[in-house]
Design a protein around this nucleic acid. Sequence first.
DNA 1: TTGTAGGCGTTATCAC
DNA 2: GTGATAACGCCTACAA
Lengths: 313, 313
Amino acid sequence: MSLVLSGKSAGRVSARTEGAVRRAAQELGYRPNAAARALRTGATRTVGMVVTDVTHPFFGLVLRGAQLAAWRTGYAVALVDVANDPDRELASFEALRAGPVDGFLFFTLEPPAHTGEHVVAIEVEPPGMTFVRFDVDRGTELAIRHLMDLGHERIGHLASVLEGETFQRRRARMRELLVAAGHDGEICETAAFDYDDAARAAGLLLDRPQRPTALFCDDDVLAGGAYLAARERGLRIPADVSVVGFDDLPFAKVFDPPLTTIAIDGGQLGEIAFAVLAALMAGEPAPPGRILGAELVLRESTAPPYLPAPAAL
Amino acid sequence: MSLVLSGKSAGRVSARTEGAVRRAAQELGYRPNAAARALRTGATRTVGMVVTDVTHPFFGLVLRGAQLAAWRTGYAVALVDVANDPDRELASFEALRAGPVDGFLFFTLEPPAHTGEHVVAIEVEPPGMTFVRFDVDRGTELAIRHLMDLGHERIGHLASVLEGETFQRRRARMRELLVAAGHDGEICETAAFDYDDAARAAGLLLDRPQRPTALFCDDDVLAGGAYLAARERGLRIPADVSVVGFDDLPFAKVFDPPLTTIAIDGGQLGEIAFAVLAALMAGEPAPPGRILGAELVLRESTAPPYLPAPAAL
DNA sequence: TTGTAGGCGTTATCAC
DNA sequence: GTGATAACGCCTACAA
């Protein structure tokens, strides 16, 4: 019967019956029931992607990448937004374990500990769990080096409030580089991924008695907050403060001045994360993890500290 | 047996057995299988939301709103991105009809014609289909009026290439208002929701022999492209060109100058769309449609045309 | 108050 | 090459 539809008719059913079946199915508007199939086969050909915050522009890129890769292999990806709520995160995981998905892409602060499910962690590297992440150490090194090469010594860090591993890495690496160069290592404020809150935190940094001459931001949204704070205070970027972001979100180049930032490829991240998960689900030997590149995109928000005022003044 | 777990034990099972059952379930790590339940009950308590482009920042807001509302009633929402591809749109619909969802939220150009499924259209108003959309007529009226009040007569339209109903509305209303005021009604270029393409199209507008003194953009992303084009040409906003956007995306206020735009509430849209769908699924009488407000947010990207040069020159 | 059985729509196996 | 049948796990009606 439905051998035909599942494409396993080769050499099993006569061409005539096959045609008849197809026609009948067509006319009756028959469509195989997904629930029954899932029950029988134990697979849904769907993977769940759980993210902390759909509202952040970076996720769209990642989801798009994962979705494209999934599509090619006949999988669908269901997105679950956890709205920065750990309880909800756990609840989602439990709900999804109940059957609706064959595997998980966890783009959150802390993926649930290993449970025998197929899961790949994104941007986190939990011990023993397959992961895909960017080389943020390299990324922050590129950013900080660039600033130090320009002559900056007092570099503020506009950091994410989120305790994610990727952010801890940024902080640690930055500190390392700064102390290695003999500079002050901890001028830091944290903010949510929200322009107003970021502006508030950036303001705290800019209002310090010893104002930092440059700001390294965990993310382009945060950098946007720094732009806001600088504008409120009549500070020019980059003449009075240099700013460097992270992510290279599409709007970074429309900021004024265009934002110098660390580019990472969200689409690629999603694509690779799905590929790794697919390997896992297929029982193939998957790599323990993948680390993706990051590079510096030079635009116009950085300059040497304290540019001399125009000669005329 | 599983009467307990489904919460229907009231007056059917003794408290003792109930406790025993719960404990056993706990220890065995038993969790009801979603596929089997779906097969049996015919419902999945999941709705599908299909969007044209996850990559656009507006969708995050809508999804968040829908997801929050769904969560409250024990529903999940699965997001499907269609990547602006009509074939994929149809394919997704077919795939989703196979069972995995109880209802649909269609945020696309053209939701598939009525098929007996529970579906609510978002930002489109197909005949006979339940919908939720913004009052874009009012929104564009607010924008155009504002520009005309400022004294603009030659207003360019930086429009979306997408043929969505919401965009056709903007165009039609704008034209109406312009011809009613006796102005030239069609200075228009279209672009994809992408800063570079938008900059290209905006450039076409700005390079016209009779340069428009103001630009009305279908969307804040497009407005960002206008900023880029103006910058390339050394044109000042708003002194040389006024710009007004649509959506009030979070980054609009960090643009320089902060963007005057039409604010619409994506979260509310998602929330209401889900509520309407829930009513539909429950068989309750649902309203034929809902129209949500839009308002003008005055910032600094608009001014009277051709501001006189500073007296000193 | 508790136990049992049937069926939801598939797929896969096995006998014809 | 084809048709029958069992089983996936849950829910619910009905019998004990």
